[in-house]
Simulated scan of single mutants.
Amino acid sequence: MTPTAQALIGAALLAAGRPITRRELADMLGLPEEAAVRATEAFARSLREAELGFEVEAVAGGYRLVVPPALAAHLAPLLAPPPLPPLSAAALEVLAVIAYRQPVTRAEIEAMRGGSASSIVTLQERELVKVVGRSPAVGQPLLYGTTERFLLEFGLTSLEDLPPLEGADFAHLLRG
């Protein structure tokens, strides 16, 4: 018995434990990428209509199975580990600068914020940012960028999903 495309998609999303890219789904199904996307969207509609307690979410350039937000509160006692404490305002500022300006050096972050960028360490520990290279500037400082986990945690498909900033030029943010 040959499994249906929807059965394969469901099994893959459940078993992977991570988002599966469109290309991976297409390869698995032996279909062009557009056809695999249509099949995945049909599977997502079937889940929503059947109200089975999980749904397909498009995130980080792929798809994953998630619990609908309306059901998450009912599952709280079963979920572990406990959530990490929220990020501080300073850490969120640093994360925003990195997300919108990447790749960016620590000195550039500090200039834009007008203060320390020490929360980079916290953001790295939470796997929200990573070193993506070195600047050609004197001393070759590290360049920081966001990770796939950043996209997952903030429910973004790609960086293009970030809300637009008024005036995309960061020069007005520089202090001193």
Rank of each mutant, 00 (worst) to 15 (best):
A5T: 02
Q6R: 11
A7H: 14
L8W: 06
I9T: 02
A12H: 14
L13E: 09
L14C: 04
P19D: 03
I20N: 05
T21N: 05
R23A: 11
E24P: 05
A26W: 07
G30T: 00
G30W: 08
L31N: 06
L31W: 11
L31Q: 10
T40S: 09
F43E: 08
A44W: 09
R45G: 09
S46L: 13
L47T: 01
E51G: 11
G53D: 05
G53I: 05
A58S: 15
A58K: 14
A60T: 02
A60W: 13
G61F: 02
Y63W: 13
V66D: 09
P68I: 03
P69F: 07
L71V: 03
L71K: 07
A72T: 08
A73C: 11
A73Q: 11
H74D: 14
A76L: 10
P77F: 03
L78M: 13
L79E: 04
P83R: 10
P83E: 07
L84I: 08
L87F: 06
A89Q: 10
A89S: 07
A89N: 12
A89P: 11
A90E: 15
A90P: 06
L95E: 08
A96I: 02
A99V: 03
Y100D: 06
Q102E: 12
T105A: 08
R106Y: 09
A107D: 15
I109K: 06
M112F: 11
M112R: 06
R113C: 08
G114V: 03
S119R: 14
S119P: 15
V121H: 14
T122Y: 09
T122R: 13
T122V: 14
R126S: 03
L128G: 01
L128N: 00
V129M: 00
G133L: 07
S135T: 00
A137V: 08
V138I: 13
G139L: 03
Q140W: 13
Q140V: 02
Q140F: 15
Y144V: 00
G145E: 04
E148N: 11
L151H: 09
E153A: 08
E153P: 06
L156K: 05
L156A: 02
L156R: 05
T157Y: 15
L159S: 01
P163D: 01
P164F: 00
L165V: 10
A168R: 05
D169H: 05
D169W: 13
F170G: 13
F170M: 10
A171I: 07
L174T: 02
G176P: 12
